[in-house]
């Protein structure tokens, strides 16, 4: 059974692919559940800042070839978890592995070279590099990046041409042709988001971690970004993204993991998440005096996801 069978959850254009959802068919929607083919596996990862425990995840697996949304209210520890996995922060304890290789404590650049590439909540474009240079920089295994070969142009000229060709393809795909040779620092907020996503792809990742790719982005661009994500998934890439707005999540993700107070409180296909009492607690605060509230997804639930679909 795929999430498309549930009326009004997925916006038709972005679409949850039956194939991707099929990979997770039969997976029990409970926190820490094992996946059939996990790409990223986290075990007992904790991180505290002073007295505050920001992350305390017992077990989390991300299924290969799917879009997994990591949601939760502000301060739930989503970004901290991303930072730990991508090597930008240290965990106090725990182990995690990626595509079968242990990743625990690896520095950020090594993580990226393994094929796990992230983006940032506040975009980080290289302001004084052109859009094309931003992309070309991200290419992996460039011979000309070593000091001695760098001065011997014939050694890397061919590879550089190929890198440029790939960059141009991505520029076209993300509709950045108009600003190709502009300094990235002159781009608008939305263009920066597109550039960052394109740049992550230039590194030929196996999996991308997108930290709030839709934050501060207008609805039209949000749809476009979502469509890009779905396309990438259909091309075989594994996507994991952080989002605290549930509406955005519903349409595109194959699986949703919910964090609150540093813990993983729920997991499941998107349509089940809105009804999950743990999620409602996390978003609206604990209040169990009325049994009915647990079933009502409330203002952040699937009702709004339908509204976004209607805009198309």
């Amino acid at each position: 059974m795929s999430a498309e069978d549930v009326p009004g959850v997925a916006s038709p254009d972005v679409g949850v692919s039956a194939e991707a959802a099929g990979r997770l068919a039969g997976t029990v929607p409970e926190p820490g559940v094992r996946k059939p083919d996990p790409l990223l596996v986290l075990d007992r990862v904790t991180r505290s800042f002073g007295g505050l425990t920001a992350v305390r995840v017992d077990h989390l697996e991300v299924q290969r070839g799917t879009i997994t949304a990591l949601i939760g209210p502000n301060g739930a520890g989503k970004t901290t978890l991303f930072n730990i996995v991508s090597g930008f922060d240290r965990a106090d304890s725990g182990r995690w592995s990626f595509a079968g290789h242990p990743l625990t404590g690896r520095p950020a650049h090594r993580v990226a070279r393994q094929g796990l590439v992230r983006t940032f909540q506040l975009t980080r474009v290289l302001a004084r590099l052109t859009v094309r240079e931003n992309l070309m920089l991200a290419a992996d295994g460039q011979h000309g990046e070593r000091l001695l070969p760098a001065v011997m142009r014939p050694l890397w000229r061919g590879q550089e041409r190929e890198t440029g060709r790939r960059a141009d393809e991505l520029i076209e795909r993300f509709r950045l042709q108009g600003v190709r040779d502009d300094f990235a620092g002159t781009l608008s907020g939305g263009q920066r988001k597109l550039l960052e996503m394109a740049r992550a792809l230039m590194a030929r990742p196996i999996m991308v971690l997108l930290d709030e790719p839709m934050a501060g982005v207008n609805p039209v661009l949000t749809q476009s970004l979502l469509r890009h994500m779905a396309e990438l998934r259909d091309e075989g890439l594994t996507v994991c993204f952080v989002e605290h707005d549930m509406d955005v999540v519903m349409g595109v993700s194959d699986w949703v993991a919910v964090m609150a107070d540093g813990r993983l409180v729920a997991e499941g296909p998107p349509h089940t998440i809105g009804q999950n009492p743990a999620v409602v607690d996390a978003y609206l605060g604990k209040r169990h005096d009325e049994p009915g509230t647990a079933g009502d997804p409330g203002p952040t639930g699937s009702g709004d996801a339908r509204a976004i679909g209607d805009e198309e």
Partner: peptide, 25 residues
């Protein structure tokens, strides 16, 4: 020769945003 090579591109990226350069391997 150096600054117009891929090496120079990385170095200029480091100047602009170290974190971004690190996130790209």
């Amino acid at each position: 020769l150096l600054v117009h090579s891929p090496w120079g591109r990385v170095v200029r990226a480091v100047r602009d945003d170290e974190t971004a350069a690190r996130s790209l391997g």
